[in-house]
Write a protein that binds this DNA or RNA. Structure first.
Lengths: 146, 146
DNA sequence: TATATTTAAGACAATTAAGTCTTTAATTAA
DNA sequence: TTAATTAAAGACTTAATTGTCTTAAATATA
């Protein structure tokens, strides 16, 4: 699996938050209800994003979470690295510690450009651009209940 | 993480087996000792590869494992899908069941070509080509003990 | 000030992945 | 035929991830 469940949830939830375009804070409960994600689990994921300064949170009535900066200044790469860490973009595909130019693994050369592509893709996708796509193409963030 | 530990081990071990260019069977113990992979764990991984007809195994003295077909006819994609399954190349990046052309997630369009690249990379890398690189460039499969 | 609302934090449980150990079956060779 | 060698199979343990629950802290409002 490319992304952990935590990261999958984090992306969907943050994207949903963005799409609401709400002035103030949005409660985590509203988001978890809407996207069918465990409230407590989502709370923990948001805590990571808050600690990484991607979100702001506020306690008490009318509290919740909000983007910490404009939606065009938060990328998918920000979200992924804040939750899963940078391993996907830094570590050897074969898990060999110390794999590098000096003594590379058999996939090193081929994986380098591929990893850069992936990173570029994640870097170019901002919450703003994705939220725009969301509107334009009526994309989905929810699981369908049949 | 892109690949599971099982797949990482499976690739390294199969590649090592290929590089030996041995006529008969190579014992799993020899491979696990050489690459510092748990013997029993590697045995299970090889069992999957044997069941997927990528390896042949033989019990008893002078037994072990061997490639089931020429090294240029086994790809990295074969190994990855045999061990981890095809999810990486088939499932939605955001984990939305039913994500597809009809009702795609916000990453669907961007991820499609990227996934195809990745798949092509894994499909073009055969055990033969990687083993050749291994010789030519003195690449490494082992963890370095300092 | 008291109560309700909301996130923070941490304990705990369930599930999955990773790793170990033991027994069985197949095969060779003495 | 007996003993040694090797993979197969499955039980078991450990660790990591995922998910749940409870309590504490912060804040607003009545």
């Amino acid at each position: 699996m490319l992304l952990s469940k935590s990261t999958e949830y984090g992306i969907r939830a943050t994207l949903y938050l963005t799409s609401l375009k709400q002035e103030g804070y949005v409660s985590i409960r509203d988001i978890s209800d809407e996207l069918d994600i465990s409230f407590h689990f989502l709370t923990k994921i948001f805590q990571k994003l808050t600690q990484a300064d991607l979100l702001q949170s506020f306690r008490g009535p009318r509290g919740g979470v909000a983007l910490a900066r404009p939606a065009d200044q938060i990328t998918l790469l920000d979200l992924v690295t804040a939750i899963d860490g940078p391993a996907l973009f830094t570590e050897c595909v074969l898990g060999l510690p110390g794999c590098g130019e000096r003594k590379p693994c058999p996939l090193h050369e081929a994986w380098g450009p591929e990893r850069d592509n992936l990173k570029a893709l994640f870097e170019n996708a901002t919450l703003a651009s994705m939220a725009a796509d969301l509107e334009t193409f009526d994309l989905r963030l929810k699981i369908l209940h049949l």
